[in-house]
Structure formats: structure tokens, C-alpha cells
Amino acid sequence: MAVYLIKRLAASVLTALLASIVVFLMMRSVPGDVVGQMLGQTSDPVATQALREFFGLDQPAWRQYLGWLSRVVSGDLGTSWTRGQPVGGLIGSALLVTLQLSVATLVLATAIGVPLGVVAAMNEGKLVDRAIQSFTLLGLAAPVFWVGLMLLVGISTATGWSPPLLYVSPAQSLRENLSIMALPIVSLAVLQAAAYSQFVRQSVVSAFSDDYVRTAVAKGMTRNVVFFRHVLRNVAIPLVTFMGLILVQILGGAVIIESLFSLPGLGRLMLSAIETRDYPVLQGALLIVVVLAMAVNLGVDMLYRVIDPRVQVG
């Protein structure tokens, strides 16, 4: 187990390193830089040169990269070129927003999606199943942006209330925070709950046709007992895998939802960093995203072992 973990971590570091090189090269191959953005419709060559030197943009790319890497290794993500604040702090506070959004969405989507899927599967072909399937299809077809917009405009038209636009962290005021986060979380959760419910229904239905279930039923156990004692366990593994996938999907949808609801999350931070060519912020944020994605994958693999001791890792 320990050997496996070390191997996985080593591979992760290598992946992160490769990803950082790719990100670095991609950013530099996009035309324009932060100096151009700052100077706008002026082009004093002396001023341009002075600013390029200030940001180290006059150095060859490989030296810029090594400089960045050596600072990152020593735990310093640098300072944002446009905001003038430490990148670590910027990413940290943005990450908290996005993580709250993602985790809450995951929990809500699971809480809605899994029971729906189970109920649908247990009533396969019946009216309940059809109703749930219809909801699922609708949820899958509606883009996150549209759901968010409809909720925002609909609720504000009907009640005259809309979420506050100035973000407040849960530590400052949980109530205020929830009134800001509720609509974004629901908007994201609709799609994921639908995806969940469909996946769970499929897994459960197919599990019921497996041999071990037939044996259990033949022993005279009720459908419900079979479900809770045998099926649920076997469905758990693909469910965890699916959860990992969904978490990554939620992170993607968060970019859109963060813009719609004015949340200062990671997606918006990266978007504005791209627009202003704020390399330190973008490189730092992408590095964190890569690390996060790898951590989710690793966590999922570890969970397999907990759920099913027969799974050999390594």
C-alpha cells in the first residue's frame, strides 16, 4: 500500500510538472502580454521595455519558466501582475468559494439523484419510473447557464428577491452566505442530479439481473432486502467513480455559474487572468486545478479499497 502510494505520488508530481510546462507554453504562444494590456492604445517603446523588464518578460521563456518553477517548489506562487496580491492568497480565497460550490452541489445532487435512481429502478417500467425518467431527461437537456438564468429571473420576478451580489464567506455569516450560494448550487445540482439518477437506475437495474441477486431472490429474500444487503454494495464502486467524474464536471460548470451569480471563485479568477495575461495567477491556478483533479482520482482509488477489500491496489 505504501509503495503504491509513493508510486502514485511520484507519477502525480511528474504529471503536474508536464502540465505546468504545457500551460506555460500555451500561455506564451497566445499573442499579447500584460504590458500591452496595461498600455492600451499607447506604445511608447521605452515605457514598454521598462514594464517588460519589470515583469521579467524580456528574459528567454525557459529562464522565466525555471524562475517560476524554483519559486513554486519553495512554496511561493508569486505575485499577481495586475492585482499586486500574492497568488497563493488569491487562489486560496477563490478556491474556498469554488470548493463550497462544488461540494455542496455534489451533496445535493447525490441526495436527490441517488434516491430518484433507486426508486426508478425498483419500479422499473411503472409510472413512477417514467416520471423520474422524464425529469432526468429534462435535467440533462437544460444547460447550466439556462437553469441559472431562469431561476434568477424567475424568482426575482415572482418574489422581488434576488441573491446579494457582494460575496460573504460562511465564516463571516453563514446565513448571508447561504442566501448567496443557494441558487448557484441548485442550478448546478439539477443537471448532476439528473445524471446521477440515470446512472444509478441503470446500475441497479442491471445488478438485479446478475446471478447473485437471482440467487438471493431465489432464497426468498424480498426485493428491498436484496437491494440493501447486496445490490447497494455492488453499485457503490461505479458510483464512487462516477462521483469523481461529476466533481470535475461541476468544476467546469462553476465557471459559468460564478459569472452569472457574481461569485469570486476559481473559474472567474482564471478567466480574468487569461484576459489580462496575468501569467502568475493563471499558472498557479491551473497547477492547483491539476493537483486537485489528481487528488480526486487518487481519493477515488483509495475509496475502492475501503468499499471492497478484495480490490488490490498496487
Binding site: 438564468l149 429571473v153 446579494p164 451580489l165 457582494l166 452569472l260 451569480f261 457574481s262
Partner: peptide, 21 residues
């Protein structure tokens, strides 16, 4: 004075109507 960044036009209009902005 709070200059609040509201990147979505729809959200800004809703905020104006509801007194958030």
C-alpha cells in the same frame, strides 16, 4: 462606495430592480 463586479448583464439588471445595486 462599493464597486461590485457583476459580470453578467442579466444579473446586473435583476440587482438594479431589486435594490441590490
Amino acid at each position: 462606495i462599493n464597486f461590485v463586479s457583476v459580470p453578467s448583464g442579466a444579473s446586473l439588471l435583476v440587482g438594479l430592480r431589486n435594490g441590490r445595486i
